[in-house]
Design a protein around this nucleic acid. Structure first.
Length: 563
RNA sequence: GCGCCCGUAGCUCAACCGGACAGAGCACGCGCCUUCUAAGCGCGGGGUUGUGAGUUCGAGUCUCACCGGGCGCGCCA
């Protein structure tokens, strides 16, 4: 257990007594908050701070400063009685309305460097919880290449998956192929038209078909496999096989796009298969058995209004075909049956109205509050001052592949990741491409490359000495301590990003980390006359390199040794 | 009309469960390379957190109303 956790434990254990001291007449139980030491807002207040006394005072309706003072005295006593803690903490103070502040000794910070070197990639990684979480994102109709919005949801989704895994969860990353229903048929008809055009260029293209060039190679592939077999056949004969053929080709492309973008899914769920395997039927039966369905106008309805939705929803149309909603219900049921405690979906902004009904059906299946939906807002593409059209209608959408091939995967991922999912994102292609100081990706990566460069310059013997972490007591420059304090935040920052489902917080931390390193690099000569000091600073470089690499890995961005 | 999201410096955005004097980057001005990568560092000006009330020891954060922007409200997906 870390020193900070021990201190929190002591505070938790003594909080009740502190409250009673402040409020002697208190009878009955009070729900006491748990202490959590966070980095102090301002160095004047010390290094760590907790408002727990104020929170407890509120619950007990008593004076926050009185609770704080009793708690401060109790903590001081406990720290003095323990050699390890006494060496780590130099001051405990009460400030403001009742903040409990800690000032840590340089020896404490120096020990963090040793800890990072010892634990490496596992530094700040908590124990496995075994908690199973399904994360679904990117999912789209297999009706074309992966486009810009999916760049955003997959960059964010995969980073969220990484950080949830880092925090000890067992995460399954899933993509759904919406390969059933009318869109799939439209795809089949579009392909058939392209295929016929290979013989007769004047062959009409369906009015509601999918334009764009991406079906041309699919039609060629179909020709290569089946020759003229479908040319004069009736629709009933070719509709399903061509829909499936197109799906298989396009899904293969989507997989490749995603892989090259650095995202590999554990599951590519076909909606069509859920129907064929009887999963949809089973899910509907489960709902029906629970008494959540009824028939009206020849259709089967789900009583969504029993679970907070605006209106009841159709599961099976009066003509007997199940709705998309029925398929998605079956899919979410599947995810629950696989043992996931938590289902997180990332959807596009046009699916807002769908959230409540999906939560309703998950609750009806007995898993209230298991589903969380994150909405990834629209992305506007720009080149300098010019907005790049992303109208799907014209069939001229800029694909995700074109974007990451133009600006690079690292820059693309960082830009997609850099804003909270629920705020609008403007992606400036020119800025992302610039290899200048304006580009935050390179700012962070440059920190890593700079360290690698110093390490290459360092004599092997000195590097060996640095790895033994024997000279850390010499690290007391303000720039050194500031950098170490930032390294020490890795745990709480990753936990915050995971807990809030806000992977963009990683980009914020990465920049802060790089800033502290660049400052240290400017202020402190690493390789110098004094071997002991050089060894200490090299050790700090090794630790900073490790934490930068961990943060970049979580974001799915490379950590280069040279730039 | 109803529901959801957003509104913070000139611009783009942060702000941990309600916590201390609301912070960064860009842009603008000034300075720093005979030493480890200047893709870097330092200093400076900039704010009634859309408006008005409420809850609280304490509100950018919670509640209500209003203003502005986006999205949704199908036996479409």
């Amino acid at each position: 257990m870390s020193i900070l956790q021990r201190l929190e434990q002591i505070v938790d254990a003594r909080l009740g007594a502190a409250v009673r001291r402040a409020q002697p007449g208190l009878n009955g139980g009070v729900a006491l908050p748990a202490a959590s030491f966070a980095p102090a807002r301002d160095a004047r207040f010390g290094d760590y701070s907790t408002p727990v006394a104020m929170q407890a005072a509120k619950a007990a309706r008593t004076n926050p400063r009185a609770v704080g003072e009793a708690l401060r005295a109790a903590l001081e006593e406990a720290v003095a009685a323990d050699a390890e803690l006494a060496g780590a903490v130099t001051a405990i103070s009460l400030a403001g309305a009742g903040f409990l502040n800690l000032t840590m000794a340089p020896a404490y910070w120096q020990s963090i460097v040793a800890q990072v070197l010892r634990e490496g990639a596992d530094y700040a990684r908590p124990a496995k919880t075994g908690r199973k979480i399904s994360l679904e994102f990117g999912s789209a109709n297999p009706t074309g290449p992966v486009v810009v919005v999916q760049g955003r949801s997959t960059a964010a989704g995969s980073a969220l998956a990484n950080v949830l895994r880092f925090c000890g969860n067992d995460v399954t990353v899933e993509w759904v192929q919406n390969d059933a229903g009318t869109q799939s048929e439209t795809l089949g008809r579009s392909l058939h038209a392209r295929y016929c055009q290979l013989w007769k260029p004047a062959h009409p293209f369906p009015e509601d078909g999918y334009p764009g060039d991406y079906l041309l190679p699919v039609a060629q592939a179909l020709l290569a496999r089946d020759g003229d077999r479908w040319l004069d056949a009736g629709e009933a004969a070719w509709l399903e096989p061509l829909s499936i053929f197109a799906r298989d080709q396009l899904v293969a492309d989507q997989k490749r796009d995603m892989h090259d973008f650095g995202v590999d899914f554990d599951i590519w769920q076909s909606e069509r298969e859920l129907h064929q395997q009887g999963r949809v039927q089973q899910a509907l039966e489960a709902l029906n058995d629970g008494g959540h369905c009824y028939e009206r106008d020849g259709a089967l309805w789900f009583r969504a209004t029993d679970f907070g939705d605006d209106k009841d929803r159709v599961l099976v149309r009066s003509d007997g075909r199940p709705t998309y909603y029925a398929g998605d219900t079956a899919y979410h049921w599947e995810k629950l049956r696989r043992g996931n405690e938590r289902l997180i979906d990332i959807w596009g902004p046009d699916h807002h109205g769908y959230i409540q009904r999906m939560k309703a059906v998950v609750e009806a299946l007995g898993h209230k509050d298991a589903l969380e939906v994150l909405i990834a807002q629209q992305v506007t593409l720009k080149r300098g001052d010019e907005i790049v059209s992303s109208s799907k209608r014209q069939g001229q959408v800029l694909t995700l592949r074109e974007i990451f091939e133009e600006v690079g995967v690292d820059a693309a991922r960082f830009f997609f990741l850099s804003r909270a999912l629920d705020s609008h994102l403007t992606f400036d292609l020119d800025l992302a491409k610039q290899q200048t100081q304006d580009n935050p990706v390179y700012y962070v990566q440059y920190g890593h490359a700079r360290i690698a460069s110093v390490l290459r310059k360092a004599p092997a013997q000195l590097l060996e000495r640095a790895r033994r972490a024997q000279d850390l007591g010499l690290l007391e420059h303000s720039a050194e301590l500031a950098l170490i304090k930032r390294l020490a935040q890795l745990g709480e920052r990753t936990r915050a990003a995971a807990h809030a489902r806000e992977p963009h917080q990683l980009t914020v931390y990465a920049r802060e980390l790089a800033t502290d390193f660049h400052h240290f690099y400017t202020e402190c000569q690493i390789l110098g006359e004094d071997a002991a000091l050089s060894s200490a600073r090299l050790a700090l470089c090794l630790a900073a390199k490790r934490v930068l690499a961990t943060t970049l890995e979580l974001m799915g961005i490379s950590a280069p040794d040279t730039m």
